[in-house]
């Protein structure tokens, strides 16, 4: 039996969930391994595998308890993972451009974030829009992408207590992560901008605009441009 790497740890997280730990959460190599392993596991069509939840350094696999043979499932997963090592050729990386308004009502937490770092609002927007981010994984809520690559000088802790309702499309910071709220709901990340793009739509294929591994660039737009795009969206239905 060929193991993917000595670092991959297998443990049953429940009687139906196998948890794979693939390395250090902070490392880009680990994130890359998680992505390749996820793709391999999804492509392998393992019997009884009903759910794959990738994150920074782990993959949680859900199996159907009907007919589950735990040992055989672990063997099948190991085999699929070793295949993912051989299949090194990374598919072409997508670059996704996201228009973001960093102004006024789109950025309710920007003044405080800027103050905390002793910078002006335009600098905060410039710093946030400067890097090319990498989508580590989609998780938490539908279409929510965890983006790696936030400049450390604007890393900011979460709000002391979460907002009850975050406007959909809000671009937010929490610690050294940034992300875009793709569906409305509660959230504790700090809102520093907003995109007019629809980030998740269950009627579309694929439903989420972002996918793990994508590169993301934020393109600053004015409030007038944001409002024009939102109006256009309403007309499109």
């Amino acid at each position: 039996m060929v193991n993917e790497s000595p670092e991959t740890q297998f443990a049953w997280a429940s009687e139906r969930h196998l948890r794979l730990a693939l390395g250090e959460a902070g490392s880009p190599q680990t994130q890359d391994r998680v992505r390749r392993a996820t793709a391999a596991l999804e492509a392998a069509g393992l019997p009884g595998l009903v759910g794959v939840t990738p994150a920074y350094a782990t993959i949680l696999l859900e199996f159907d308890l009907n007919g589950l043979n735990a040992e055989r499932s672990v063997v099948a997963v190991r085999r699929a993972l070793s295949a993912s090592v051989e299949q090194r050729a990374e598919t072409q990386t997508r670059i996704v451009e996201i228009p973001v308004c960093y102004e006024g009502p789109c950025a309710p937490d920007a003044p405080e974030v800027a103050r905390m770092h002793g910078i002006g609002l335009p600098t905060l927007a410039r710093l946030h829009a400067a890097p090319t981010y990498r989508v580590a994984f989609i998780g938490f809520a539908p279409g929510f992408g965890y983006l790696s690559g936030l400049p450390p000088q604007i890393a900011t802790p979460r709000l002391p207590s979460p907002r009850v309702r975050v406007p959909v499309g809000s671009v937010a910071i929490a610690g050294e992560q940034t992300g875009i709220y793709a569906t409305p709901g509660a959230g504790g990340w700090r809102l520093i901008g907003r995109t007019p793009l629809v980030m998740f739509d269950a009627r579309r294929t694929p439903p989420a605009r972002l996918a793990a591994g994508d590169l993301v660039r934020f393109m600053p737009i004015s409030l007038a441009e944001f409002e024009a795009q939102m109006r256009g969206r309403a007309v499109d239905g």
Partner: peptide, 11 residues
Amino acid sequence: RPGWASVGVAR
């Protein structure tokens, strides 16, 4: 809806 966890949708 099993199978959509990788786009953030729980069952």
